[in-house]
Nucleic acid binder design. Structure first.
Length: 277
DNA sequence: AGTTGTGTTGAAGA
DNA sequence: ATCTTCAACACAAC
């Protein structure tokens, strides 16, 4: 599942496609294109040039000529591939292909077809409700401890849910919220409001540390995620709790637990991460 | 062979 | 407002 480090890795790779223009588009699943019907989308994107590729939360944005932007959200199982990529089962669910003016292909492989692709006028995208309500970028310099603390004030929700809430902080999902909380030794079910200063400082510290480390290793490939060359990310080697149910905690040897939280799994060490008050 | 798990997001219902 | 549930879709594992 692409979260911030995986999307960041993809966006870095896509810098190779800068200054290229779209020649045409193919799909076998027109519903992936939202907002416009496919015919219109195809017509609109033709000859538009890629001026910039950037990331906001888990969104990839191609800034195009003529004041347009192409937004791609890979959701659960989507990943972009460019030019030549490794042959691999999860790279074989190609449902969308962009043909560029250098003869290369930008493709979307997406097993479950949840990804969304939208063409926007840049101004409208930036001022859209969904875009504006996104929380701050956790790796920005402007995301200070004071800022982080102010986001959690009076939040009764569980800390794991807060970390994953895109409108509070942008880019963190199930894998990295589990990992951050293991490092900070915080039980995922504790409420944001009850964390003390030291606990908040630890969570803040490990948000930055874990995300940065994961970017260095090109993300995590627990199942589907691949970079634009179709290669796996290497952060899996550093995973401490995610999908390690019944395996031993690397810190204390206690068996890692998995507990359901609103339809998704929280993994944690019941000894290191106690639900104390 | 049918059921369950996988997990992002938005929408619908309570 | 705030919480929970579900649907979008496809496949692997049991």
């Amino acid at each position: 599942m692409p979260e911030l480090p995986e999307v960041e890795t993809t966006v870095k790779g896509l810098q190779k496609a800068l200054n290229r223009a779209f020649i045409s588009v193919w799909t076998d699943s027109e519903k992936i294109i939202k907002k416009l019907d496919f015919k219109k989308f195809k017509k609109e994107i033709k000859n538009k040039k890629i001026n910039k590729v950037w990331r906001r939360g888990k969104n990839i944005i191609f800034e195009l000529s003529g004041g347009y932007s192409l937004l791609i959200h890979q959701k659960l199982t989507g990943h972009l591939l460019y030019d030549r990529w490794k042959r691999d089962k999860v790279n074989d669910y190609i449902h969308l292909k962009f043909f560029l003016d250098n003869g290369k292909v930008l493709a979307l492989s997406d097993l479950r077809k949840f990804a969304k692709v939208e063409l926007w006028k840049t101004e409208e995208l930036l001022s859209s409700k969904d875009f504006r309500k996104l929380g701050p970028e956790p790796l920005d310099e402007s995301f200070t401890f004071e800022k982080f603390k102010s986001l959690l004030i009076n939040k009764k929700a569980k800390i794991k849910q807060i970390l994953m809430d895109q409108d509070i902080i942008a880019g963190i999902g199930n894998i990295y919220s589990d990992e951050i909380l293991w490092w900070a030794k915080i039980h995922p079910f504790r409420s944001g409001a009850e964390l003390n200063e030291k606990e908040l400082k630890d969570v803040y510290k490990y948000i930055k540390l874990v995300l940065n480390r994961a970017i260095k290793l090109k993300g995590t490939s627990v199942s589907d995620y691949r970079d634009i060359k179709g290669e796996e990310g290497q952060f899996k080697k550093l995973i401490k709790v995610y999908q390690r149910e019944n395996e031993k905690c690397f810190r204390c040897g206690t068996e890692i637990k998995r507990v359901k939280m609103g339809g998704r799994s929280a993994h944690f060490c019941p000894f290191c991460q106690q639900n104390k008050k």
